[in-house]
């Protein structure tokens, strides 16, 4: 604030008021440049072809155009994925431990005919051979398998989130410019955070599978490390941007850094922290379904297996389960957020 008065012009002077129009030639040049970039890059990633093919598909659907590659492809996928597989059956002969008087829940034993082509070693002819086998039919067996895998996936996501939160707390403290003890700790921690964030989960999981073997450990660590980078950065930036007034009040009475952070900053940033953490949980659930592809546990392992065996009905069940899990989690976190804010 300045005590000098605002100078007033002497009476009688002519004032030259000028308010420039909002757009100038520079704006036009910028506009053209942006347009050029959009056109060139759009062509390079085949956005023009995409628009044409999509238009053709729409035409095909409303009956104007007779053929569309997109519609053909999609309907092939749709047909092979429908209906989603719910049940499961196993040959009784392969289940030596099965107790016929105590079958698993909802299941029953069925007698089926199976026809197979066999090569007759004597005649060297292919012969039809029909045999009667007993199978254990589990009407919701596959659904159960998927549910168990889904729970495992959710557990991986949950623990990935727990680990990321634990790791990001010290990271956030040292990466917040106004709390880090000195410039070196600040720069170092920022570097660690960038490193963690820049390593994609899938690649990290790939390496961790080599280190820890197949299974959830690699998955949990891969998710936790990546998310710790994300949370560390966002937690730290919220600390830096938090209202300075309460912090100054506590600093002024000599409360000390940690206590000032806890009483002057944390209550202010808590809602954002909860939002970030819930986002990470959501993201981890989605990522946990994917990292199974490299053998890091969870439903992704099942998904990859079925995909590789062209069992698209099973794939459909898995995808529906993932969608359901993400949707339910969304509902849950929206409710939690509303309560905590």
């Amino acid at each position: 604030m300045d005590s000098k008065p605002i100078p007033l012009p002497a009476p009688g002077t002519r004032l030259d008021w000028r308010l420039d129009p909002p757009y100038s030639a520079r704006h036009l040049a910028w506009l053209l440049l942006v347009l050029a970039i959009i056109l060139v890059t759009g062509h390079r990633v085949e956005m023009d072809r995409m628009a044409m093919m999509s238009a053709q598909a729409v035409g095909n659907l409303i009956g104007i155009s007779d053929d569309s590659q997109v519609v053909r492809g999609l309907s092939r996928v749709g047909q092979s994925m429908w209906p989603p597989v719910i049940g499961d059956q196993e040959e009784v002969a392969r289940l030596p431990e099965l107790d016929r008087n105590k079958l698993p829940l909802f299941s029953h034993i069925e007698v089926q005919q199976r026809t197979e082509q066999r090569l007759n070693p004597q005649t060297l002819q292919l012969e039809q051979e029909t045999e009667t086998i007993e199978v254990l039919v589990k009407p919701v067996g596959y659904l159960w398998t998927v549910a168990v895998k889904m729970v495992e996936t959710l557990e991986i996501a949950l623990w990935g989130t727990v680990i990321s939160v634990l790791l990001s707390i010290p990271l956030a403290y040292y990466a917040a410019r106004n709390y880090s003890p000195n410039r070196y700790t600040y720069t170092f921690t920022r570097g660690v955070i960038s490193l963690l964030r820049s390593a994609p989960e899938l690649i990290v999981a790939l390496f961790l599978v080599l280190a820890y073997g197949f299974g959830p450990i690699a998955g949990v660590l891969a998710l936790g490390l990546h998310a710790a980078g994300f949370l560390g950065k966002f937690y730290a930036e919220d600390i830096e941007n938090a209202d300075k007034k309460p912090q100054e009040a506590l600093e002024a009475i000599g409360a000390g850094k940690l206590k000032t952070l806890w009483y002057g900053v944390m209550p202010q940033v808590a809602p954002q922290y909860i939002a970030y953490t819930l986002y990470i949980l959501d993201r981890n659930v989605r990522m946990a379904t994917v990292i199974g592809l490299v053998g890091a546990g969870g439903i992704g392992q099942e998904l990859k297996g079925r995909f590789d065996m062209f069992q698209y009905g099973h794939v459909a069940t898995i995808l529906l389960a993932i969608f359901l899990a993400v949707f339910l989690l969304d509902q849950f976190s929206a409710r939690l957020r509303a309560r905590l804010m």
Partner: peptide, 18 residues
């Protein structure tokens, strides 16, 4: 010394969400 000196601020400087 700060522990012996209290301060009252124009903008109250409370932690609003606490």
């Amino acid at each position: 010394l700060r522990k012996r000196v209290a301060m009252i601020h124009q903008h109250f400087n409370l932690t609003n969400r606490m």
